[in-house]
């Protein structure tokens, strides 16, 4: 009989991935509605520090799976270890954060176990014993409620930022830390990982900028960037960009905002010609004031904007620059 919710805790070099705590909030809320208990599982060579940190939260238990073959992340190692952990614990749900690492192994894990995996969820609701997950399609333009008809365990990953990590409930007493025995002897790790690295030393720290003007695909060409640069200059703002701009090398990569770039929360975030694909939104949605300028009135960026202007950025941006200069008495 399957019961309980198993939460995957991600760590790298003994450092807890904060988004695991966001997923923990999802798991704890799910438990509150279904009456299940949440346990966590953490993998690695030595995970005692992370396990102890997580054990302070409201959890039934923190299971640890340790082996030399789990020292560096590989999909084969993680799939083999987690499969055995899940088989031993037989939870109803396996909850994960939708990180790049989870994306790299969890679909293999679910497939090899013949289970369904609902990815990149925003939230859920429980209805007559069944869980309905909300996930976005068409890059955030449309939400869907997804009903799962499958045998336990159901795998579900939650998008970064879908729950607030600081809302993870603390336990009254530390949860017991229980090592799980798994057989890793015969597991072949096909992946040979090298050390992780950063491409360039980040020259610009956008996280400290109070004002950011960000530019996206709508700018169309590199030559057109100057109008946005002029606006940023007039405002005294840093310039930033969505991914396609940096992929085209129109701006250096250290200007990129989003899941693969920097995460910022300035006083003002002015998004020019950015549609608001979710990969971008996760990097800026906590900005204090968001302004969006876009020709498409249906662009998802308007859903999080405080102020919006629908129109041609090539007319609006220069007009805005002129107004900012006027306001500053230049």
């Amino acid at each position: 009989m399957s019961e309980g919710i198993l939460l995957f805790i991600e760590q790298r070099d003994g450092v807890l991935n904060r988004t695991s705590l966001e997923a923990m909030v999802a798991a704890q809320r799910m438990a509150a509605e279904t009456g299940d208990k949440v346990s966590a599982v953490v993998l690695g060579r030595d995970v005692s520090a992370v396990a102890t940190e997580v054990a302070g939260k409201k959890l039934e238990a923190v299971y640890t799976v340790t082996d030399d073959k789990l020292a560096s992340y590989t999909p084969d190692g993680y799939v083999a270890a987690l499969k055995q952990a899940i088989e031993q614990l037989s939870p109803r749900y396996v909850i994960l954060s939708h990180t790049y690492r989870v994306r790299d192994f969890a679909p293999i894990l679910a497939s090899t176990m013949g289970k369904t995996f609902v990815t990149d969820c925003l939230c859920f609701r429980v209805e007559g014993g069944e869980t309905v997950f909300t996930r976005q399609i068409f890059q955030g333009k449309i939400n869907t409620d997804v009903r799962v008809q499958a045998e336990a365990p159901v795998f579900a990953s939650f998008q970064a930022g879908s729950y607030r990590a600081d809302l993870a409930e603390a336990g009254e007493q530390p949860a017991p830390i229980k090592p799980l025995e798994v057989e890793m002897e015969g597991v072949r790790l096909r992946t040979e990982p090298e050390a992780a690295f950063q491409e360039t030393k980040q020259a610009v720290d956008l996280t400290q900028a109070p004002l950011i003007v960000a530019v996206g695909r709508g700018i169309k060409s590199q030559e057109n960037l100057s109008i946005v640069q002029e606006l940023a200059e007039a405002m005294g703002a840093e310039i930033a960009a969505s991914r396609p701009i940096c992929d085209n090398e129109w701006l250096p990569m250290d200007r990129q905002i989003g899941s693969s770039g920097q995460t910022v929360a300035p006083k003002l975030y002015l998004a020019v010609g950015i549609s608001g694909a979710i990969q971008h939104v996760v990097g800026m949605k906590n900005s204090q004031t968001i302004v969006a300028i876009n020709k498409d009135p249906e662009a998802p960026i308007f859903d999080l904007a405080d102020y919006g202007i629908v129109g041609d950025l090539f007319e609006i941006v220069p007009a805005l620059t002129a107004e900012v200069r006027k306001a500053k008495g230049e």
């Binding site: 369904t116 609902v118 869907t144 997804v146």
Partner: peptide, 14 residues
């Protein structure tokens, strides 16, 4: 195993 039972425009968060 996963069926979309409803598709809708996202609610505005702001």
């Amino acid at each position: 195993a996963q069926v979309i039972e409803r598709a809708y425009l996202p609610l505005k968060s702001k």
